[in-house]
Amino acid sequence: MGSGVLDTARSLPLILASSETEYDFMIKKLMEIHIGDTTVYLTTTHVALICVSIFLIVFALIANRVLLKADPDATPGMFQNFLEIITDMLGGMVDGLMGTNAKRFVNYISSIFLFILICNLGGLFGLRAPTADYGVTLPLALFTFVLIHYNGIKKKKGKHFLALFEPIPLFFPINLISEVATPLSLSIRLFGNVMSGTVLMGLVYAMFPLFIQIVPIPGIMHIYFDVFSGAIQTYVFCMLTMVYINDKISD
């Protein structure tokens, strides 16, 4: 009974193109590196991350050069305007939420904002979005976790841990779980959103030859999953990082 159903399913021309081959949206191994007894793989995520890093570094170097050479009296050029819009928006975003503490965090928040944004937009340029790998989003969330508690301890010393026993000591386990769940939910939120976009785009591309003749659906889906969803999730990640940090250092 079982094999008959499977054979019929395989002959159906639906999920079709990809059912025989490897799924297009999974992380692929590109190279094996042997270190002692362990084998480390170089995957598509690494390549995409290197591409994103090189892009951001080159962009930053050019931006630095342009701004250093900028003439205060002349009309700013196109690129300088663009840079000023970015800095202004990121500065306003951090300033609006953190107020007096904004100065200390604006650099970090702006960096991860640009990094995650370019990572999420990577799907548009044929990369496999690096944030669709849990190994990328978990470290990002752990940075947030460390920042939260470093700043909390710095601000309130021992009282930082007393907050775990509020309102009554009986709540200690619940408070502990909610602290540990913070980086987990941050990372899974980003990973899940980007991954769902990647999976859906992979499935759409698997039936691309059929679809392209009817309507340009992949393009519209790219706009939604990569641009809209990616930008929203970037914003949310940075906002939540700021909210959590602000929670610990303000009173």
């Binding site: 899974i188 899940g192 991954m195 769902s196 909210v243």
Partner: peptide, 17 residues
């Protein structure tokens, strides 16, 4: 609103993961 929606979405994403 977007912040609240993103937080509300987390449970759905747990299911997806």
């Amino acid at each position: 609103m977007l912040l609240g929606q993103a937080v509300a979405e987390t449970t759905g994403l747990y299911g997806f993961v």
